[in-house]
Simulated assay, not measured.
Amino acid sequence: MSYQVTLTDQPGVLAARKRVRTPAGELTRALGDGFASLFRHTAEQGATPVGPPQVAYSGEFAPDADVDLDLLLPTDRPVEPGNGVEPARLPAGPVARTYHHGPYDRIGAAYEALFAWIADHDRRQAGPPREVYLTGPDAVSDPEMYLTEVVVPLVPTGN
């Protein structure tokens, strides 16, 4: 699969965040449970989601190790902390992004394309990469139809 990487400026966004540590083999369950918790807490707070759910991988990813995740749900207003959920803000700034079409187990190629682009363009990463789930198992039954935006925040040029 070929990936087109684009550079864009992303606006700052309020979000509800839930931090999760899980064995890599239990990632699917952890994401499902975590996102359910985020949506429930957001609804209980009277906040409205204003974008698709996202996950930031804050550490190294190894198939046989635990994975640290920040599950994020953009919201129209801050949420109060509770149930393991806390308010957060996704910072504004430049990002490199690409789109992955297909099952999540093949998304590694999108990361490879992004990091190659970043190196080729002499840019520096400013934060953990994020996956933005545009179309997933909640909307389609065929994993070949999944659409995930993969985003890497960048240090602004001149910094």
Rank of each mutant, 00 (worst) to 15 (best):
V13W: 05
D76R: 14
D64M: 12
H101M: 10
F35Y: 11
T42W: 03
V13L: 14
V67Q: 07
T48Y: 13
P78G: 11
N83V: 00
R17Q: 12
E26N: 13
A96D: 04
G32C: 02
P49H: 09
P52R: 00
R17M: 05
A113M: 03
R29S: 13
G102K: 05
A109V: 09
D66M: 00
G93Q: 05
V55W: 10
T98Y: 08
G32V: 00
A62Y: 00
H101N: 12
R40H: 12
P63I: 11
F35W: 15
V79D: 10
D76S: 07
P87T: 08
H41V: 01
V95I: 15
E80F: 03
G51N: 02
G25M: 13
T22D: 09
A113W: 00
R17N: 09
R17L: 08
R97N: 05
V20G: 04
E86F: 10
A92Q: 12
P81Q: 11
E60M: 00
P23E: 13
P78T: 04
V55Y: 05
L73H: 08
L31F: 12
A62G: 03
L14Y: 08
G82M: 08
P91E: 14
A47Y: 11
E44L: 04
G32L: 10
P63T: 11
T75G: 14
V20N: 14
S58W: 00
G108P: 09
Y104I: 00
A92T: 10
G59R: 02
V95A: 02
A88K: 15
T48D: 03
P53R: 02
A96F: 06
G82N: 15
P53A: 00
G59D: 11
T42P: 06
V79N: 11
T22W: 13
R19I: 13
L90I: 15
V67D: 01
A65Y: 00
D33A: 11
T98V: 04
V13G: 10
R40L: 02
V67E: 05
T22F: 14
P74F: 03
A109K: 04
E26I: 13
P23R: 14
G93E: 04
D66V: 13
D33Y: 06
G51L: 01
A15M: 07
P53L: 01
R106A: 08
E86G: 09
V20E: 13
V67H: 02
R89M: 06
S37C: 03
F35I: 00
R77K: 15
R40P: 07
T48R: 09
D33W: 10
S37R: 12
G25D: 13
D68W: 00
A109M: 10
D64T: 15
Q45D: 09
G32R: 13
P52A: 08
G84D: 14
E80T: 12
V79Y: 03
A109S: 12
G46Y: 08
T98L: 08
V55N: 12
E26T: 14
V13M: 11
P78M: 12
Y99L: 14
R19N: 15
R40C: 02
R21P: 06
G34C: 04
L90Y: 06
L38M: 07
V85Q: 13
G51I: 04
L14Q: 13
